[in-house]
Amino acid sequence: MKTIFTLTCRNFKIFFKDKGLFFSSLITPIILLVLYTTFLSGIYEDSFLSALPPTVEMDQGVLQGLVGGQLLSSLLAVSSITVSFCANMVMVNDKVNHIKDDLLTSPLKKPYLAISYYLATFLTTLLILFVALIFGYIYIAISGGFFFQIQDILWMSLDLILLTMFGTAFSSFINYFLSSQGQISAVSAIIGAGYGFICGAYMPIASFNEGLQKILMFLPGTYGTSLIRNHTMNASFEKLKDTLPSFAIEKMKDSIDVNIYFFDQKIELSIMYIVLIIATILFLGLYIGLYLLEKYHKRKA
């Protein structure tokens, strides 16, 4: 355990000492934050208002709470993957720079090394996401839409931990196969650009065509986005109940992936948790399994 702890500290320290890695991990959250506050928030506002009958007037605070909640959930869902991919580059760099050779000539057990990379990436990602969450709270509070109760905050924190565990397990599994700087760049670019679309962060999955929606429902990231969106928007939807009938609220929830459906079957929050936990265990198991199967470190001669 002491070895895992020490290695985790080492990986954590390397990430924050490497300014390139640290700042590149912040790029996605910062770009999204700027994009949302300057551009997308207006579109989301118009979208919510257009869904209401002309006779109904929505409270400005509730509107800002809904917009802020959607923005925050998207930001956290995407960043849980992109940040963990960046944080996990310590593992890839160790391989590319042959530092792994040095580590493995000691009596270190390979799964210990794998777990230390996982823990360091998890802690790094969680730290950055919690900072992003606090900035999100501040933004929502300034815009006048902060209705969160303590239980909402606790649920969001739990979601964030789970999303980070999933993101770290997924990135660890993918990054295990990377062994050159070119591959690192390619994967970072693909993940950074593409993941937001397929997890429903940039655009709600409900706005895609039916075939694509069905395909995306097989991806665990979709459930993560919806899960945290439920909790970032729940308080505002509760407030909205004073203005709108529940069927109209449900329709609104359908349109922004708060409610998601697997072949017309509505997915309960408990199922979302189960899907994320199973996906995390699966990717983590595969990742550690790969280290266990590696009898010899595949060093290039």
């Binding site: 070895t3 020490t6 000691s106």
Partner: peptide, 8 residues
């Protein structure tokens, strides 16, 4: 320090 810990 970190390398030494690999040997306890």
């Amino acid at each position: 320090k970190y390398r030494a810990s690999l040997y306890s």
